[in-house]
Design a protein around this nucleic acid. Structure first.
Lengths: 153, 153
DNA sequence: GCGATTTGGTTGAGCGTTCAACCATTCCGG
DNA sequence: CCGGAATGGTTGAACGCTCAACCAAATCGC
């Protein structure tokens, strides 16, 4: 059975390619800056951020995976790496013997505190400084719509 | 010298995290679909697309790198891989003996033709179907602004 | 012209992600 | 209860990307 492809028209093409170029350029730039200035990829920064925001600075692996939007495998590898660097430590979960709890160490918190100002400055410079307040608002609505659409289905 | 960090306010936080989540979810989803259905990552798909759109289906490595927004190293590795699969072939450049020209093969064109409908459908489903026409327009302007801002500086 | 710099491109090591396979524990239906 | 399914998490191999080092050819300055 052949289904007609709903091709993109010219404007849609433009939009899609611009979006691809923009999001890649932005994430690449920030990732590179973070790696250079703080010695960690952005994905690891996000893990540290999430842990730092929660009481006890500890989260179940699966919750952490959900919050960072990463697969369990990815998170498992990442936390393993973070553990060797001494920024995160693993603990057994008292209520579920399958469970593991990732805990942010003091060294991890310090590394995050050291990395944050530069990274936030980068986000501001590369993203917010370029857009009008109206565009920032539009971007938020668009992004929230997309997240709902993508995680819903 | 200490410079005050221009931290993100609450709304900016929301926007930034939503954008991160959305762009990651979108690219991850499309990448996974493309890998599953066509056996290639999205970066390689883009290379084939760019080559297919140009007369002679051939481009200098450096032009191809610019068009796909990738580093020379990345492109070099990618083309090497595409060559072993038989989708791209390398030729010497007649006017510059340092140069290399990447040429899309018939097999490469066929692979692209086979992959395109499914991928385009995915882009439509996951992106355009979720947004209003006004939002699509906003997204284009935002993306173009960001690209200019990021590649300009 | 000739040495120094720049440009075009490749290479290999190190690292992060993916995928599939896997193990242990917990939950659920009958 | 008990057997099967679902859940939580890990592992290792394959692969793509990054970075720095590198080579060859072209270009620039004097």
């Amino acid at each position: 059975m052949t289904v007609m492809t709903r091709w993109l028209d010219h404007d849609e093409q433009q939009t899609w390619r611009a979006f691809l170029a923009a999001s890649r350029a932005l994430t690449d730039t920030l990732d590179r800056e973070l790696q250079r200035d703080a010695g960690m990829p952005h994905a690891y920064y996000e893990i540290l951020v999430r842990l730092s925001e929660v009481p006890g600075r500890r989260l179940r692996m699966s919750e952490l995976a959900d919050l960072t939007g990463s697969s369990r495998s990815r998170l498992s590898h990442a936390v393993a790496r973070l553990e060797t660097v001494g920024w995160v430590r693993r603990e057994e979960c008292p209520t579920d013997r399958r469970g593991q709890i990732a805990v942010l160490t003091e060294a991890g918190f310090a590394a995050l505190a050291a990395a944050a100002p530069g990274h936030v400055e980068g986000v501001r410079r590369h993203l917010f400084d370029a857009l009008s307040p109206a565009q920032v608002d539009q971007l938020r609505r668009i992004s929230e719509t997309l997240v709902a659409h993508l995680t819903g289905s």
